[in-house]
Design a protein around this nucleic acid. Structure first.
Length: 124
RNA sequence: UCAGACGGUCGGACGGUCGCCUUCGCCGCGUGCGGCGGGGGAGGAAAGUCCGGGCUCUACGGAGACACGGUGCCGGCUAACGGCCGGCGGGGGCGACCCCAGGGACAGUGCCACAGAAAGCAAACCGCCUGUGCUGCGGCCAGGUAAGGGUGAAAGGGUGCGGUAAGAGCGCACCGCGCGUCCGGCAACGGCAGCGGCAGGGUAAACCCCACCGGGAGCAAGACCAAGUAGGGACGGCAAGCCGCCCAGUGUGAGGCGGCCGGGCGAGUUUCCGCGCCGCCGUCUGGGUCGGUCGCGCGAGGCGCUCGGCAACGAGCGUCCCAGAUGAAUGGCCGUCGACAGGGCCAAGACCCUUGAACAGAACCCGGCUUAUAGACCGUCUGACGCC
């Protein structure tokens, strides 16, 4: 998949981000973010992406579409707005399939801004 | 024209822009990456995982028995099937057509609730009839009967006529049923002489019997490469026979090696043959394996034509190469057109407006089945009405 972005590959990587990452929820998506420096201090590579669309989103067709829309969004925004050495996980919601793309883009920009703000707690 | 039956095809289209997977060619170097150019890139069900195969591993090779599971009219097709085609039988429909777990109930066993007198072996509750019986004149008793009533899903052929005390296949006709001659058919089966006065109820989606089929697990199968670990440990139980040699020796003893016998394990159980492994079995415990490559798409393959066949299908020729991901590509966004639906509008059409496409996403592959599915189109046929 994402060849502009590296991506998360194993279940362990996903669990680490979802379990410990900073969280922000918008109508169209939920974001989880964690920096990799704790495990790999000298790793300042490109941001990495993971996508989650659970069965709550709908059928296999709906889940695939959610992942494709989120992937397109991430490929557009993360190279510019993402921080190096950081893992991002985007979680699809039931509204992600139908929400207008422009609104989804605004959702992601807002979420990135909130999550990057220093000094915030883990649970907004 | 309307209503309907069957079969088949398709199941959003075009463009712009930014991307993804894979493959081929060329170029570059830092040899697996980058650049440029070309090709390919979800479905009819990709689904459910219900059958049948290929493939892989399992010692799983041959024969038999048992168990378990499956299939079940006949013939054909197929690699195979529980699939398909063509027939047969039964049922439904005016019809085109549709539906059917459709072997065996004289191999045996069981069951047939409720109701009913009686549910499988003949019997008789009400009734009908007879009597030289009894009587308190209501009936009772003895015998005959199974037509009628009543119960039931089912009551020991049905209808009619004769017959009779009343009745009864008691007799006859027709129908049904059983046996069965001959004829047609590969067969299932059908037709038809004749015989039998009727026996043999149902249930096998109850056990069962018969015939046929079937080892098991699955691509997270499995193989290779790299790195690294290990060729484990503890406890308990069972088995440790004979011969030869070596060491040792007073010795039929202890130890070691080899052979034979025996034993154990080997994917349902078991017997025989063959084969493989070696102490075997149980419990507890330590360590390793989730990186890469292959498997992984030339196939029971698609399309076209010809021939054989009623058909399923087969044969020949020509032509094409057509997804291969692995946190998982096959797309995101925009525009135009647009099906269905709703509204303007009381009804139909035209027009306009709104919305903007059903079921649904490959994960080793193939043949089927089943289930989901908005709508569009084509062909054949049936019935009704109208016209000629």
């Amino acid at each position: 998949m994402a060849q502009q972005l590296d991506h998360l590959r194993t279940r362990a990587e996903f669990l680490r981000v979802v379990g410990r990452g900073q969280k922000w929820a918008t109508p169209g998506l939920v974001i989880r973010v964690v920096r990799r420096e704790a495990e790999h201090p000298d790793d300042a590579g490109r941001p990495r992406l993971g996508l989650i669309a659970s069965k709550k989103v709908g059928s296999a067709v709906a889940r695939n579409r959610v992942k494709r829309r989120l992937r397109a969004l991430a490929n557009e925004l993360l190279p510019e707005h993402g921080k190096p050495g950081t893992d991002y996980v985007l979680i699809g919601r039931s509204a992600t399939v139908e929400r207008r793309f422009e609104e989804l883009r605004q959702d992601l920009l807002t979420a990135l801004e909130r999550v990057h703000k220093p000094g915030r707690g883990h649970r907004p």
